[in-house]
Design a protein around this nucleic acid. Structure first.
Lengths: 288, 288
DNA sequence: CACCCTCCATAAGCAACGCTGATGCACGTG
DNA sequence: CACGTGCATCAGCGTTGCTTATGGAGGGTG
């Protein structure tokens, strides 16, 4: 199971083609074929059914492991490269769009920084692999509880603020005149699932216990304005932090039950040094 | 960074010797030397300082990654092997000693099972690598909150019971006559750190916020009786689940603040099949 | 202080691995 | 039915990675 073999395997599985994977990886088709054969022989079971090329059950399991594994390898390499001196110039912040609250935006340094908005799930990955020096992730949590991040690699987190959450409703919605809403009453409503921009619905299910919150529409961009527009157009409800929950044609009603907050956390790998440390200090708010 | 190189690297770092690692791995000393040289060349930085053999800073970072990486690799292989048929006969349960409460013990099947007590931190590893079919881990948590396990590999957990915790004091201790204790008042007391048997002190620090709970003695076994004897002998306080907190010469005082419980969880990898599923069903208690 | 012993680095040789290019074979397609 | 596409297999060859042998640096001992 050496990493090269795993890399080819995921490429083949993703592209559903040996030859396409070969082209992408710069190998010959023959080499790819041999890679897969070696892997299958090593594991003692077929990983792909050919024609069409589809992972077997065992192959699916391997895929679940291979991604994090390769990610972790890159993370290790990146961390050591950073430590070995590679005088890192610019300063890059990877952030989920709703993690960019007025608070965090205000703390941005005036010059020399790159801000990269990514789907929420990609932020820890970017930080781990060194693609970004710092990350801002957000999510739903009980007040003062830390977020639960899938730890692909050892990342350090520190709170960077929290605020109430609101439900965004189209202006004419029957519930729009309420002063507060309970999540339990909304389990069967129409929701927009926006893992890239708003809060993914599985966070709601986790906060509420279980069940419900079936998406009426799934939005895969990272743009919050589009998301609020979708809410205004009646495509479904959207949960947003207070500071982001204002848009024409919508009403933002506070969530009263359960008591959850929108929490944003700063995430980084290893020790903070140089400009990243200064930045982190400005973003960090133990007192919030 | 192929796994073989990482494996040799961790062996060398652990044994602090190239030649000892070579013996352990069945290589010649020369091969080990070359492995390390290749790794260092690949990463562009020394990983070990020789004579004595000690990891450099970069080497320490690599160690942090290498362990989980190799573990995950084994986990992937184990999962696929299990799926590939290898008709798994016996049924093995890996458990932390204090996870074996009367409840969980009562659910053990009458015959044909192996019970293996391990240090708490090794239980998820045993399950992930297929060394055990099921695991029982325990820890401190807010009531009805799940435990936070370091996820080395995708493991599924389900609650298997929770109960109050008590502080074990030697019979003559000044606090022994109290009916309840607050954790905050005990931050500066003498504690026994028993990551294998009782609850590790870092759990207490996490539950209490930060600071304090310095170990007066560290106990590395997995035997609870020895641990209670240490408490009785006045070597330090010990935190235990109610059901385990009874021993001659000691007094077990309930912990009233913060509101934490001793929670035990059943952990398994992938889907439960056959006898493991039956066992899990008996251990599982959603209602507790 | 000199000797030796341990331990890691390096060199040379050889077998095995892993890649390429060519060919074979099966399935789907026009 | 013939052809084309796509994966498997084979032969050849360069490279890798192991072993044995040797060199050099430290540390301990008489």
């Amino acid at each position: 199971m050496d990493p090269h073999l795993l890399r080819t395997y995921v490429a083949v599985a993703r592209l559903a083609s040996f030859s396409a994977a070969a082209r992408e990886l710069g190998y010959t088709q023959s080499a790819v074929s041999q890679h897969i054969a070696v892997l299958e022989q090593d594991l003692g079971t077929p990983l792909l059914s050919r024609r069409p090329v589809v992972p077997t059950r065992a192959g699916e399991r391997l895929l679940e492991h291979a991604g994090p594994l390769l990610l972790r390898l890159d993370a290790a390499r990146a961390e050591i490269a950073a430590l070995a001196g590679a005088a890192d110039e610019g300063l890059t912040l990877a952030a989920a769009s709703t993690a960019l609250t007025p608070r965090t935006l205000a703390a941005l340094p005036p010059t020399g920084a790159t801000l990269r908005v990514l789907p929420r799930a990609d932020v820890p990955e970017a930080v781990a692999t060194g693609a970004a020096h710092l990350g801002l992730v957000d999510g739903l949590a009980a007040p003062n509880d830390p977020l639960r991040l899938a730890d692909v690699a050892p990342l350090t987190t520190r709170g960077a603020g929290q605020e109430p959450v609101r439900v965004l409703l189209p202006a004419g919605h029957p519930l729009a005149r309420r002063t507060g809403l309970r999540l339990g009453d909304l389990a069967d409503a129409r929701w927009v699932d926006a893992p890239g921009a708003g809060l993914p619905l599985h966070h709601l299910r986790a906060a509420h216990g279980t069940g419900g919150f079936r998406p009426a529409l799934r939005y895969e961009g990272t743009d919050v304005r589009t998301l609020t527009a979708l809410a205004a157009a009646g495509h479904g409800l959207v949960l947003l932090p207070e500071s982001a929950a204002a848009a024409p044609g919508t009403v933002a009603v506070p969530l009263t039950e359960p008591r959850v907050v929108h929490r944003t956390e700063l995430v980084h790998a290893g020790a903070l040094r140089g400009p990243a440390a200064a930045w982190a200090a400005r973003l960090d708010v133990t007192r919030s």
